[in-house]
Amino acid sequence: MRRRTLLVAGASGVGALAFTLGLGWWQSRDSLQPGSALLPLPIGKMSFTLTNHHGVTVTPSEWIGRPTMVFFGFTWCPDVCPTTLSDISLWLQDLGPDADLMNIFLVSVDPERDTPQVLADYLSNFDPRITGLTGSLAEIKRAAEEFRATFEKVPREDDYTMDHTAGVFLFRADGRFGGIIDYHEDRHVALLKIQRLLKAAS
């Protein structure tokens, strides 16, 4: 029997809607958008507690003051996650020292397998400015809800894989949502989005 744990924050299709609204939000700057309940919370309103890959407890309030980039994934993921981490590493390489001013996180949606040590081993293959976060399933669910992201455990014959929101979330230094870099986003567009955050923060 197939048993699925489905975690959905808000209505179905929230990812696409949040993306569309997210772009609108990003473009119209400070004006409040109708439907903003579907956008990620501002970082200042997030309430989860996770552990980073150095074993240190992390709360989102510590992120305020620097632009933030967050990606949901897991280290058993053969295709999307190494590709996105490689994309992020290339963006960071292009941005150079400017990107030292950012918080950059991979939030694991697979805490069963992704311990801090596992994340540390895995992330040593990518840009060192990327920090891995894991924790209890309850806290990861809380984080996903606050980002309006989704993840779902998909059983396979001998093990399981995870479906998960694939975009990269951006936040401004003051914690407000700053847009999403979509999976397969053009590299130049991705860089422009990040540079706008960095410019606003400097």
């Binding site: 999307v80 989704t150 779902e152 694939a166 999403i180």
Partner: peptide, 13 residues
């Protein structure tokens, strides 16, 4: 053989 599909922002294989 698998295919990565991104639907409504969510990736599955």
């Amino acid at each position: 053989l698998h295919e990565t599909v991104v639907k409504d922002g969510v990736a599955s294989m």
